[in-house]
């Protein structure tokens, strides 16, 4: 069986319909100045013409606020509440596919929960997935991958579930011609040329970053940081959460709620007794880079930065991940000791 297929543009609705058995389908739609993943049922609502969505697909896989259980305040009988039912994510760029792969290494149940359909993209000046090693779908988690061509999609299969969907679409899809595969290769070649010129290979930098733990660069660059936490909130791989128990007003049940937090907030490192493990802005600032590039690599064998550029794009004061790393790793004459 061939592993690449051609799906005409008019077949997108059929693809959407055929995926409904895997769960509710979320896809990129336009909202305000950007794009967001939203539940859709009609292919006409989907807009693939985007560079990055405001929030990563993480918002469905690991919701920012989620009820995880209920218990009775007297009997203390605890009932876990899971978000049952699968989810289909249609239109996920390679960087986010790698983001899902990273999350799935921490939360293995995500592999079963989501049916993921990737889609090809073009970079802007904030994208550095090529340097992060996540510019292509290979080695990431996906079931199907679409490459946008004129009038249709080249469709690649990434999992057994994906083969099942292709089977269902027989009659609509046909095998990709050599010409189409050639066009796809050409597209990937042109895409690679669009990335920023100065390359910054993130693979292999974890030791260097650890060695530069006491560099003055952290102190210097964190001065502009507002500590708003946007960088971690928009990150496809950040998963830190806190939880609390909220009683209902009748006093009959207590809900346990988990919510996303951020290492950029002082309260993240606050422990009983009032001690802050990361009291200063520069420590919190550094912590993010350190955890992304050193911590994740050691924990799950894959860096936590997939180069999607969201933290750079959405930072209100314009702190750029790639510039911070360039300054840290490449600039000579910086006092790296303090």
């Amino acid at each position: 069986m061939r592993i690449s297929w051609y799906l005409p543009e008019t077949g997108l609705q059929d693809l959407v319909d055929s995926l409904s058995s895997f769960g509710r389908l979320a896809a990129p739609v336009r909202r305000g100045d950007g794009h967001v993943y939203e539940f859709v049922s009609s292919a006409s609502d989907i807009d693939f013409n985007f560079t990055r969505t405001k929030l990563p697909p993480k918002k469905f896989l690991l919701p920012y606020k989620r009820m995880v259980g209920v218990y009775h305040p007297e009997s203390m009988d605890y009932t876990p509440v899971g978000n049952e039912g699968g989810i289909v994510l249609l239109g996920v760029h390679p960087c986010d596919l790698h983001g899902i792969e990273v999350l799935a290494r921490f939360f293995p149940e995500l592999r079963e929960k989501a049916f993921v359909v990737g889609v090809s993209c073009l970079p802007d000046e904030h994208c550095f997935c090529l340097d992060a090693g996540s510019a292509f779908a290979e080695s990431a988690l996906f079931d199907l991958f679409l490459v946008l061509l004129e009038g249709g999609f080249l469709l690649f299969v990434g999992s057994a579930k994906g083969i099942g969907v292709v089977e269902k679409l027989k009659g609509l899809i046909r095998e990709a011609t050599e010409e189409e595969i050639f066009l796809c290769r050409k597209f990937l070649e042109e895409r690679t040329k669009l990335f920023r010129k100065r390359t910054l290979p993130l693979a292999g930098t974890s030791l260097l970053i650890e060695a530069l733990y006491h560099s003055q660069v952290w102190e210097e660059l964190s001065k502009d940081c507002l500590g708003c936490g946007t960088c971690t909130n928009v990150c496809p791989t950040c998963f830190c959460f806190a939880s609390y128990d909220v009683p209902d007003i009748e006093g009959r049940k207590v809900k346990r709620v988990e919510f996303a937090t951020s290492c950029q907030y002082p309260v993240h490192s606050l422990v009983a007794g009032g001690h802050y493990f990361r009291p200063s802005l520069s420590e919190r600032f550094k912590h993010r880079y350190y955890h992304k590039l050193v911590g994740y690599t050691r924990q799950v064998g894959k860096a936590g930065c997939v180069g999607c550029g969201r933290c750079s794009f959405f930072c209100p004061v314009g702190i750029r991940m790639e510039e911070v790393l360039e300054r840290l790793l490449y600039d000579q004459g910086v006092n790296h000791r303090c």
């Binding site: 305000g32 909130n233 009683p247």
Partner: peptide
């Protein structure tokens, strides 16, 4: 907070920033 207080519990506080909620709502910055 009322639900906490009528059950004799101090309302839960977790100081984050408005940006946290704004990003999660996917507003334009």
């Amino acid at each position: 907070s009322m639900a906490f207080l009528v059950n004799g519990v101090k309302p839960f506080e977790y100081p984050m920033t408005v940006c946290h909620e704004c990003r999660i709502n996917e507003n334009d910055c």
